[in-house]
Design a protein around this nucleic acid. Structure first.
Length: 462
RNA sequence: GGCCCCAUCGUCUAGCGGUCAGGAUCCAUGGUUUUCAUCCAUGUUACAGGAGUUCAAUUCUCCUUGGGGUCACCA
């Protein structure tokens, strides 16, 4: 059984990069009928916040990514960690270190001045004297002092680290007794049965440390996949300053979960030339072996295109429902279907869609000046009058085609081109020279409103 | 700086020794449309550089350059 997890630290909101690794983990678990767990890494009591954890859960809900089982909070698991730390102490694989923070930083400065690698010098590794007074010890793990550690990575291949280059006896429990990241990650992953770890590239250099913990505790190693970073336009790691990195902001901006997920799954992963993936297809086709090795730059052009695509292909009833999240209630409108049909072809986001709908439903409060100059030359007012008369005289006006017929009649009788009626009519109805088909607009707003808007335009420009 | 990772159109990517280097997006042009958008068609643009290996390298190896990540009693 494939067991994956997403393990964010609740120091901020769920961002794009995190969401992508979460998605990969989710897909891989689902594809294998496995489990996808959520774990909140809040061992550092000074930093985490409950709201942040809740925000992450909210984002998952919006996106429809369900985790299995209960959410695990590391802050509730102190006893478990304490037990394993004690075990390592008992077995002589870890030890108390009485070096004060001051002494440590001094050591570091000396090393830096000598252009050496900064590392713990192992002072208390084999200490059996009397510990200094008044110092709460941290606990360090005994790391190998020679040899190599190989991370067998599903994305990068085998990555070999020289123990001497990268490892020192790192701290697994702080002076206050709380365990540190590299320790708890390994313990929790092992205890939760996580056997496929999909996470960001930035963790690759941590992995040897975690392997030390796995091995010291006799746990079986999971399979690792280190996914390349998503970079911003400057080519640097994505950060909060790079615009919308909070996933929920995408909801605010009018993106659909389908589009966002589809966009993200194609960032660093591909399946031939395929661009459009339903959730079912993602699950069916995703495989971490197809993850790219190189970082990608975050650019939302394609997200816009995908969003437009999904909007076009979403049934109207569903769109109406989604639009309520943007404070647009359409339930009572009798020409809802026509309205949505007309507008879904033109919107890149749901928010934009709301705007387009309002442009149709709400009479123009002003007319575009340049447009008026262009369209209200010559006989425009006469044409509008004639059209309005004909509309007024018609009883059965419901569908766009009904209005179209009236327009045709006017055009034929007056011996003019379609443009001669289209342009002024468009200004009368919408206030500008662009927009959806006029016959549809009139069908949507109805006969009375149509006549009213035409009359307003005539009065304003006669 | 040490260690590690990476390198195909502007961007996302396909490629897994022999391809006119493919697709998507973006941009441009044309067509459809009373307008705009959609849609359709067409087009411009890429193998970082240098050595090898090979009959043959975008593809394999090495070096250079460039970019990124990481080096905490943060996660």
């Amino acid at each position: 059984m494939v067991i994956t997890r997403f393990a964010p630290s609740p120091t901020g909101y769920l961002h794009i990069g995190g969401l992508r690794t979460a998605l990969f983990s989710y897909l891989w678990a689902k594809k294998n009928n496995g489990k996808f767990f959520l774990r909140i890494e809040d061992t550092d009591k000074a930093r985490n916040s409950l709201e942040a954890a809740e925000a992450i859960v909210k984002a998952f809900e919006w996106l429809g990514l369900a985790h299995d089982g209960e959410i695990l909070y590391q802050s509730n698991r102190d006893e478990i960690y304490a037990k394993y730390i004690q075990q390592l102490l008992d077995e002589g694989k870890a030890y108390y270190c009485y070096m004060s923070k001051e002494e440590l930083s001094q050591l570091r400065e000396t090393q830096m001045a000598a252009k050496e690698r900064t590392m713990y010098n192992g002072k208390y590794r084999d200490f059996d004297g009397t510990p200094p007074e008044g110092i709460e010890p941290a606990i360090r793990i005994k790391a190998p002092q020679s040899g190599t550690i190989t991370v067998k990575d599903g994305v990068k291949g085998d990555v070999v680290f020289n123990a001497l280059d990268i490892l020192d006896d790192f701290i697994i429990a702080r002076a206050d007794g709380s365990p540190t990241y590299n320790f708890v990650v390994a313990v929790d992953d092992a205890l939760m049965g996580v056997n496929e770890v999909i996470r960001g590239d930035d963790h690759l250099s941590n992995t040897p440390k975690q392997i030390i913990v796995y091995e010291a505790l006799g746990f079986e190693l999971p399979k690792f996949y280190h996914v390349p970073m998503i970079h911003n336009h400057e080519g640097k790691k994505l950060s909060k300053r790079d615009g919308a990195t909070d996933v929920m902001e995408y909801k605010e901006m009018g993106y659909t979960p389908e589009a966002l997920l589809n966009f993200l799954v194609r960032l660093g992963w591909s399946h031939g030339d395929q661009e459009i993936f339903s959730m079912e297809e993602m699950i069916e086709l995703f495989n971490p072996k197809d993850i790219n090795k190189s970082a990608s730059i975050y650019n939302t052009d394609k997200l816009d295109w995908l969003n437009a695509h999904y909007i076009k292909n979403t049934p109207n009833a569903k769109l109406a429902e989604l639009l309520t999240q943007y404070n647009l209630i359409l339930t009572s409108h009798d020409k809802k279907e026509i309205l949505l049909d007309v507008v879904k072809e033109r919107a890149k986001t749901l928010k934009e869609m709301r705007g387009l709908i309002n442009e149709i439903l709400i009479a123009p409060i002003s007319y575009d000046e340049n447009a008026v100059k262009k369209a209200f030359k010559g006989e425009a007012v006469e044409v509008l009058k004639a059209f309005k008369e004909k509309v007024n005289a018609s009883d059965e006006l419901h569908l766009p085609s009904d209005y179209h017929t009236v327009m045709e009649n006017v055009v034929n009788e007056m011996g003019i081109g379609f443009g001669k009626i289209g342009q002024p009519l468009r200004i009368a109805l919408l206030g500008k020279l662009s927009g959806p088909g006029l016959d549809s607009v009139m069908a949507i707003i109805g006969k009375d409103e149509t006549m009213l808007r035409i009359q307003n335009a005539i009065t304003a420009h006669a």
